[in-house]
Simulated scan of single mutants.
Amino acid sequence: MAEIRIKGVAKDFGTFTALHDVDLTIADREFMVLLGASGCGKTTLLRIIAGLETATKGEVWIGDRRVDQLPPRERGIAMVFQNYAVFPHLTVFENIAFGLRMKRMPQAEVTRRVTRTAELMHIEQLLKRYSGQLSGGQRQRVAVARALAMEPEVILMDEPLSNLDALLRLEMRAELKGVLAGSNTTTIYVTHDQVEAMSLADRISVMNGGKIVQAAGPVEVYRNPAARFVGSFIGNPPMNFLSASPAGAGQWQVGGQVFAGPEAPAAEFAIRPEDLHPSDTGLPAEVRVVEPLGPHTLVTATVAGQPFRAVIDSTLVPRPGDVLHLAPMADRIRWFNPETQKAL
């Protein structure tokens, strides 16, 4: 069993604190994505789990073993790096077999594992080639195959697709999801790409400033952000936020319109751009920029002088200077505490 428990892990680099008392449990065979902007602490946390970095305090458990005091080779972990880290002087077969041979496995078992993982990653026809003869996508497949061949309890992946072009990333995402779903491995995957996170994860841990802001399923993170940061980081374009003023018990005035909301001393209104539709009534949005994007149109506007975006049907093409009334879907409106920035 490869449940991972991270208990109160903190990391200081001199006077800078990269991680603040992080607690996280990752279920056996779960695909967990650590998502956040550069500098949020996600790679530092991954390296602590791997044993490449020592925590200032806290514990890391894999199953019933505390591993934060063990060397990396004793943790039952394989890692896939951003730069692939395949050996150019070895063939694909030798690259995949490298870790197995370091463990002095019998040649028959080495051949079996290399063949099986090469077939899983669709690179069996490349086994005799050297890595210098491969494309970036093929080298990435070799790196993943080498990790899978070790049959680890845990696979850690640090932005493994960031060096690939958009089409190849799409292909590799589907490949990874299919292969890892059929394995017995617990996966932790680091990325700053929210599309990767949403498409791959069983759960997403959104990180900011060395803390986990929310850990939940992709739909939950998207639809019900626990904090303003999550709503602003997840989604392209991100959530709209508008100031609100009290208009009675549980009533709030936003952009000249009144909406039912929480009974609280203060609140901020939030809605996703795709959860709006043109209407005779609704928020008056003064159009600034119109971007036709094929199946839909992205409108950048202002509401009561505040920036606002809407995704509308491509058959509607307003012009800059027009006032477009946009009605929010009532069940998609979210509210945040302006002081704590947490969801209400």
Rank of each mutant, 00 (worst) to 15 (best):
F233M: 02
R129G: 15
M329L: 11
G321N: 03
R173E: 13
G209S: 04
G217A: 10
T340Q: 04
S38H: 10
A343L: 04
S38I: 14
R169V: 10
T297D: 06
R29F: 01
L70V: 07
A108P: 01
E268K: 00
L120M: 12
P106I: 10
Q341L: 15
D21G: 02
F336M: 00
K342I: 00
I6W: 03
A343V: 06
R288A: 06
M239K: 11
E109V: 09
P320V: 02
I155W: 08
D64M: 00
R173V: 01
V86I: 12
Q107H: 07
V110L: 04
V206W: 01
R139E: 14
T111M: 13
G8A: 10
T56P: 06
H89L: 04
F93L: 07
P295E: 14
S245E: 09
S199Q: 05
D21C: 03
Y130E: 07
A226V: 13
T15D: 11
R112H: 10
V254N: 13
Q82I: 05
I48F: 10
T187M: 13
I49G: 02
G250A: 12
L156V: 13
T44M: 09
L242Q: 12
F229T: 00
V230L: 08
A10R: 11
N95V: 12
R228A: 13
P237L: 09
D202S: 09
A301W: 00
I77N: 04
L100S: 13
M239A: 11
G250R: 11
G99E: 09
N83T: 15
L156T: 06
N163L: 07
L46R: 04
W252K: 11
P292V: 12
D202H: 11
